[in-house]
Design a protein around this nucleic acid. Structure first.
Lengths: 201, 201
DNA sequence: GTCTATATTGCGATAGAC
DNA sequence: GTCTATCGCAATATAGAC
């Protein structure tokens, strides 16, 4: 069975929007990439922005699913929760390699889809991490005096930045060295080791 | 004395390009924002791309200066060199709040200016950090077995990501909590603590 | 649901007066 | 160095045939 035009449009539009932004791609280009007619975009999505919105929602699908799983889970100890987030980051970027580009594009120049999609999920992730770190400090796992809000950003940064910098990093690092899993593991180890309470103080 | 049109164009174009990208801003918009005529962009910069290139070069100015200073400096011990990078990051983002947006925009969708500007400076920073970490491991300061290339990206990530995420972070964190210096200090402390060799192993 | 043809608007760049 | 006027082109969107 052949894919319908609607689905095909979303699929081929994803890397185009991710690379060039909403303003950087024309409807003609989107239609041609999908092997569809120019009018198809308006017909199926009501215009270019409608297609962009659909692409963005597809990108956040795995995050929505993961957040539901987390909500339905029994509460884990702090370190376990941070570990869960770490594997979630790796998994999501594997499933949706373009996601981070959309997030950053939306962060620096929000489109109409920002409120509807981005602002819906990011705060929930932030809250999950914030709570985990708070409990960890209270339980004595992590350093007292840690600024929790900043520490959340640090974890997100040390894990996610790699996935933005990858195109450039590929040119700077020996090729054999590349493995998302290995990166994420070491980065998380550095972070966790960094916030852990020192035994001898 | 009034600023000349050339300078004024670069100044007003900076936030526009940073927010909306090269394709997202029109020459008419750029000229109007600078209080100049539409033809001025072509006259002074040979077109929209020429202006964009000039903006990008201005953004990288402090980095170029910092790299020269580093090159002319006596070699410092590894931890000092990483500390130097950290204060450099904070300083540059303070001087050029839009820089990171341009870097990321160029990373995901390189324009003609990418080769000329971005590829010129980033590898030199990478090399400086790579060498510092390598020496630190050799000297026994940092954990043996550390993947140096990945560790460079982790440091860049934990420090820089914050400056991208700021617009969103402002909404998630209590307002009083915001200070770039405080963020950078804690993040660097976490990182350094994370890569340090454990005393008791 | 898909096509062609077209209406309309805005784009970047420049010629030529001042 | 700055302006107006305009050329040529590509953009989005849609009306109407199939």
């Amino acid at each position: 069975m052949e894919k319908d035009t609607r689905t095909k449009l979303i699929e081929t539009a994803t890397p185009l929007f991710a690379d060039k932004g909403l303003a950087g791609v024309s409807v003609r280009e989107l239609a041609h990439a999908a092997g569809a007619n120019v009018a198809a975009v308006s017909y199926h999505f009501g215009g270019k922005e409608g297609l962009y919105h659909a692409v963005l929602e597809y990108q956040f699908e795995p995050i929505a699913a993961a957040l539901e799983n987390i909500g339905a889970m029994p509460s884990l100890p702090p370190v376990e929760r941070l570990t869960l987030y770490t594997s979630l980051v790796a998994g999501v970027h594997h499933q949706r390699p373009y996601l981070l580009r959309f997030v950053h594009s939306e962060l620096t120049s929000p489109t109409a889809a920002f409120e509807a999609v981005v602002k819906k999920y990011i705060p929930r992730i932030f809250h999950f991490l914030h709570q985990s770190l708070e409990e960890g400090v209270a339980a004595g796992d992590f350093r007292p005096g840690l600024d929790i809000g900043f520490a959340v950003i640090s974890l997100a940064g040390i894990l996610n930045f790699y996935f933005i910098a990858k195109p450039l990093a590929r040119q700077l690092l020996p090729i054999g060295e590349f493995s998302d899993e290995r990166y994420v593991n070491q980065a998380f180890a550095i972070y966790l080791n960094g916030i852990r309470r020192n035994d001898h103080e």
